[in-house]
């Protein structure tokens, strides 16, 4: 298959996935090995569900699928190992660059803070740090864009769709009830 534009091999289109067919990208073999090991572990786990008790056991399909995973993964490892290494790509520049690491840390931090801190403060912090880091524009711009979009998202999800995001340190429920009362009082 011909690739119409060079951006394709980063995988931003799913139908023609990333990767390079005829060469091995940095870390690709390691990834394949991890998948093979994980498949083996899952197969063992699937065997533990019910063993070979019956064709209809809850472990039957899981065992079949994890076996398929293991076979495919081992074949991928063998195939990948035979490919020549790609030239001109490094793990730290092309696969997991600084920006991706920064966002990995940011998202991890978000996950940890969401429950104790609550949705609004955590999200505001995340957006401000992320947008400032990426855009390198002024604090005023960053804060306006972040808070503005956060308010829109909050209104849609919390008010219209009544999704109860963790409130954390913000007394959201009291706040909303207050406005509701005021609104109903005015009617």
């Amino acid at each position: 298959m011909t690739h119409p534009d060079t951006e394709h091999h980063d995988g931003t289109s799913d139908a023609t996935p990333g990767g390079v067919e005829a060469a091995r990208r940095p870390g690709e073999l390691g990834f394949a090995i991890v998948l093979a090991l994980a498949s083996a572990a899952l197969l063992y786990n699937a065997y533990g569900i019910a063993g070979f008790e019956a064709l209809s056991s809850p472990g039957a399909i899981p065992m079949a699928t994890t076996l398929a995973m293991l076979i495919a993964a081992v074949a991928i490892v063998v195939k990948t190992a035979r490919l020549p290494k790609i030239t001109g790509e490094t793990l730290s520049r092309d696969i997991f660059p600084t920006a991706a690491i920064v966002f990995a840390v940011l998202l991890l931090g978000y996950g940890l803070l969401l429950q104790p801190f609550g949705f609004l403060p955590t999200s505001a912090l995340f957006l401000i740090v992320a947008i400032k880091y990426l855009s390198k524009r002024s604090w005023l711009y960053t804060a306006t864009v972040s808070i503005g979009s956060l308010v829109v998202i909050w209104l849609i999800f919390r008010i219209v769709f009544t999704v109860l995001m963790p409130a954390g340190i913000m007394p959201e429920a009291e706040f909303i009830q207050f406005f509701r009362n005021m609104f109903q009082g005015a009617k």
């Binding site: 995988g11 799913d14 139908a15 996935p17 990767g19 990834f31 394949a32």
Partner: peptide, 12 residues
């Protein structure tokens, strides 16, 4: 999924 895309595994 990020690594899958980099190494040519389809997500669909």
């Amino acid at each position: 999924g990020y690594f899958m895309r980099h190494y040519g595994y389809p997500l669909g």
